[in-house]
């Protein structure tokens, strides 16, 4: 198939970018979207042009590196896929495809389609863990966990941290990402111990990074490649409220250390 691509090109974080139009031809409908990009890049390199830079690694939908905003939707038109899992059979011969980077203040563009998503790491660092050191933990079967909760926890934990939720949200809100981590732990007895501190710390860091607020539009859920539910956002709100209202005031440094 032959395609017209309109791709955001930006040399580096400080330069101004623009859309550049490219034509690619003889693309197999069996190839993946990124393989189509490879073909484009190969031809650019041979011409001596700078190839389009984009993040990718596993190419099987799990590392969360790939991140293209394709025709108005993060990861393109298919449901529940990442960009690397999108296949060209989804498009028609002669289509024009507009490819943009994730857009959000906390995700500045570094080059072309590559953005800096370290804001997500910062949020996890604020409390996305159970504070246990290596060793000295109880036997794995010491605490039974209801299968329902274990499964719900796993649903939330499936997040790959790609940022499609932020990219899709009209407010560039990170609530789905943050709530997925909060929920994963809130549903497990191991995570309950610090649930109150965790949710407050993570929400605070999320705000601090400059993400938008949640208007409950549901765009995040619709675009999440792992189909993480916005019920996690409700759970986080619940956790947050109960933490704010019920949790005792803890002096800085007097414990927890989350």
């Amino acid at each position: 198939m032959n395609l017209t691509l309109k791709i955001w090109r930006q040399k580096n974080a400080t330069s101004k970018g623009k859309f550049v139009t490219y034509k690619v031809s003889d693309i197999s409908s069996n190839s993946s979207f990124l393989e189509m990009m490879d073909v484009l890049n190969e031809s650019l390199v041979l011409k001596g042009d700078d190839p389009v830079a984009f993040d990718h690694d596993c190419r099987e939908g799990i590392c969360g590196a790939c991140s293209m905003y394709i025709n108005g939707r993060p990861h393109g038109p298919d449901k529940a896929v990442t960009t690397c899992q999108l296949h060209m059979r989804r498009f028609n011969d002669g289509d024009t495809i507009v490819i943009e980077p994730w857009r959000a203040r906390p995700f500045p563009v570094l080059k072309d389609l590559i953005v800096d998503r370290s804001a997500f790491d910062k949020i996890i660092q604020a409390g996305g863990y159970v504070s246990v050191n290596t060793g000295g933990v109880p036997d794995a079967n010491a605490i039974p966990i209801s299968k329902v909760n274990a499964d719900l926890s796993m649903d939330a934990a499936a997040c790959i941290g790609c940022g499609a939720c932020v990219a899709a949200c009209k407010n560039a809100s990170a609530m789905l990402f943050v709530s997925a981590k909060v929920s994963q732990f809130a549903l497990l007895p191991q995570g309950r111990t610090e649930a109150a501190e965790r949710v407050q710390a993570m929400v605070a860091e999320m705000d601090n990074q400059g993400f938008g607020n949640c208007t409950n539009t549901g765009a995040c859920e619709a675009e999440c490649p792992k189909e993480i539910s916005i019920s996690n956002i409700a759970r986080m709100n619940r956790e947050f409220l109960s933490a704010r209202i019920c949790a005792p005031k803890v002096k800085e440094g007097s414990g927890g250390g989350i």
């Binding site: 108005g72 507009v98 203040r105 009209k170 407010n171 809100s173 938008g212 539009t217 765009a219 619709a222």
Partner: peptide, 18 residues
């Protein structure tokens, strides 16, 4: 705040199901 969170808008946007 929501507007500030996305200083550069998309060229094509709003096709997500909401």
């Amino acid at each position: 705040q929501n507007w500030m969170a996305r200083p550069t808008r998309y060229k094509v946007e709003g096709y997500s199901h909401t």
